[in-house]
Simulated scan of single mutants.
Amino acid sequence: MRIDIITVVPEILKSPFEASILKRAIEKGLVEVHIHNLRDYAQGNYKQVDDYQFGGGAGMVLMIEPIDKCIQELKSQRAYDEVIYLTPDGQTLDQKMANSLSLLGNMIILCGHYKGVDQRVRDTLITREISIGDYVLSGGELGAAVLCDAIIRLLPGVLNDETSALTDSFQDNLLAPPVYTRPREYKGLEVPEILTSGNTKAIEAWREEQAQLRTLKLRPDLLK
């Protein structure tokens, strides 16, 4: 998989890919992540990428020209399955979407900034619009990091135990059951006896029941 991220502030995106699981996935060659500074495709001494919006109003808008140049240059080098724009009014990211995106080969992620991008970008260059939640951030960079993490951890070979991702919350519209580790007893708090019984079938049944109960209590909307 190859992910190309277009941004005005590439510095924000460096850290997430230099540590932990994402770094390991890149080093293993399981994914390529390339960050592109939109200003490299802008004209003039000031490398302007934004301007005032037509019709007046507060806030600057990312211009179509540098975005188009960047995307067209990338497309001239390879085919892309999706060109994604991160925006608060996009389709909300969920586990089902992450699963689907993890099966793709190449994608471009455009990070919005300021008041967003010229609508013509969305009308002609973008194939999918995604939101990470019903709130507004200063830019799409943190959203891009969230999206990449959700996708990359699902790629075969990224996690040490590939079955781990299959038991995460939301994979089957249920929250994950409670988990415990050593010590078996701490300050009078004990691990449920069933988990130390060695009865695999009973343990799986308990986990399924706990997942159902937890979802019913915390996220009943998932069961509809």
Rank of each mutant, 00 (worst) to 15 (best):
Y80K: 07
D118M: 01
P16K: 09
F170L: 14
M60V: 02
T167V: 06
D172K: 06
Y46L: 10
I84T: 02
M97Y: 01
V9L: 14
D81M: 04
Y46P: 02
L38D: 05
R184A: 15
S76M: 05
A58R: 08
N160L: 11
Q95W: 04
K96N: 11
W206C: 10
L93E: 09
L38E: 06
E209L: 07
L110R: 03
G140L: 10
I151L: 12
K75E: 08
L213P: 04
K224V: 14
I84L: 04
L218R: 15
D149I: 07
G116Q: 04
L38H: 06
R120H: 06
E190V: 11
I67G: 03
A165Y: 06
H113D: 03
R153Y: 12
V61I: 13
P177I: 05
Q53T: 00
L125Q: 10
S131L: 13
K75D: 04
L74I: 08
L74E: 04
N37R: 13
P178W: 00
I12P: 03
A176R: 02
M60K: 06
F170M: 06
Y135F: 12
N199Y: 12
L166I: 01
S197C: 13
T167E: 10
G56Y: 00
E11Y: 08
M60E: 04
K69C: 11
A98I: 07
Y52F: 06
M107R: 04
L104T: 14
N37L: 14
T167D: 10
P177F: 12
P177C: 14
H34L: 12
S138M: 11
Q53P: 00
V9K: 01
I109V: 11
L154W: 05
A205E: 15
T7Q: 07
D81W: 01
T87Y: 05
A144D: 02
L104Q: 11
D4Y: 05
L74D: 02
N106H: 12
F17A: 02
R39D: 05
P66S: 08
L62V: 10
T196W: 10
R153S: 12
Q212T: 04
D118W: 01
G112M: 08
L154S: 05
Y186A: 12
A19K: 14
E11R: 13
L142A: 02
E129L: 13
A176Q: 12
D168N: 11
I194F: 08
A79L: 09
D89E: 15
F54L: 00
G157A: 07
L159V: 10
